[in-house]
Design a protein around this nucleic acid. Structure first.
Length: 277
DNA sequence: ATCCAGGACAAGT
DNA sequence: ACTTGTCATGGA
């Protein structure tokens, strides 16, 4: 399948810490389970190339997944008006926020606390492998809340999740017993949605923002992790030790509905050494 | 070996 | 309201 798209930075999109299920197989080529389908992803100059052996994926679903129908011109003009953000734009224009599965995003970012991207990817791979192996059908991808809730949390520890295992298990239990709750969150305003997500065990303000941004496409969410904190302190607070809450409030006031995208560009630029800390 | 990683949480000021 | 110690685990 070939999808016309001039403005998608595939590498930045898949490697900027918003999804953990894609492996780079070669320069510019990735493999992973996209909306439940095993795929290989790559680009030409003008198209996104999706190889999907078993079928079942439509161009529209993929286009929606990569947010390709959203016009980013408003974001780009905002980024160009700020010398700090302009540098990130120049490096990673076409970085897009994926509309990934809400449950998977929620689960993955429970695993992200006090952790690094490489090991989160490793945990994701271990979890998928475990559940794929014990399924009757050959279905791939991240386990549903029901599947995880059915497992003993000792299994999750053995998969290497550490102290996060009981957090993930308890959240899976709640979500599987309250199947419409994620939709309730999706319909809530930002503050209420953030409070609801934060009520899950192992989810505080930062992970809640990640879940809202990546799992619910709430573009006003602004996750403040250690990278964002460092970058924002240096770039916007003159090196002062502003805490997470102040940085969060500053970003939402300054960037509003674009805060989530701004965060993604700053985060990736900081991690890739654009701002040289 | 010690420190750090897309933090959360409880306990102590 | 703000600071501190602790929680598994692997890589640097």
């Amino acid at each position: 399948m070939r999808i016309p798209c001039g403005d998608l930075h595939l590498e930045a999109t898949l490697e900027s810490g918003q999804v953990f299920g894609y492996e780079k197989k070669a320069a510019g080529r990735y493999e992973g389970v996209l909306l439940g389908h095993r795929t290989s992803l790559s680009r030409t100059e003008s198209h996104l190339v999706v190889e999907n052996g078993h079928g079942g994926l439509s161009a529209k679903k993929v286009s929606d997944y990569f947010d390709l129908d959203s016009d980013l011109d408003g974001l780009y003009s905002l980024l160009r008006g700020d010398p700090v953000l302009e540098r990130a734009l120049r490096a990673f224009k076409g970085l897009r926020l994926i509309r990934q599965d809400a449950w998977e995003a929620l689960a993955c970012f429970i695993l992200s606390s006090n952790n690094n991207v490489k090991r989160i990817q490793h945990m994701h791979r271990a979890i998928c492998a475990y559940y794929e192996k014990r399924r009757k059908d050959g279905r791939g991808g991240f386990p549903s809340a029901e599947e995880i809730a059915r497992t003993h949390d000792r299994v999750l520890r053995e998969l290497g999740l550490g102290y996060r295992a009981p957090f993930l298990w308890a959240t899976a239990m709640f979500v599987s017993k309250n199947p419409v709750y994620l939709e309730t969150i999706a319909r809530s305003g930002y503050a209420e949605a953030r409070a609801r997500v934060s009520a899950f065990p192992g989810i505080g303000p930062k992970v809640a923002d990640c879940a809202l941004l990546y799992g619910f496409h709430r573009l006003d969410a602004f996750p403040v992790d250690v990278w964002i904190l460092r970058a924002m302190r240096k770039l916007y607070f003159g090196g002062r030790r502003a805490d997470e809450a102040r940085v969060h409030a500053f970003a939402q006031k300054r960037w509003g509905a674009h805060a989530g995208y701004v965060q993604q560009y700053i985060f990736h630029a900081a991690r890739r050494g654009i701002y040289e800390f």
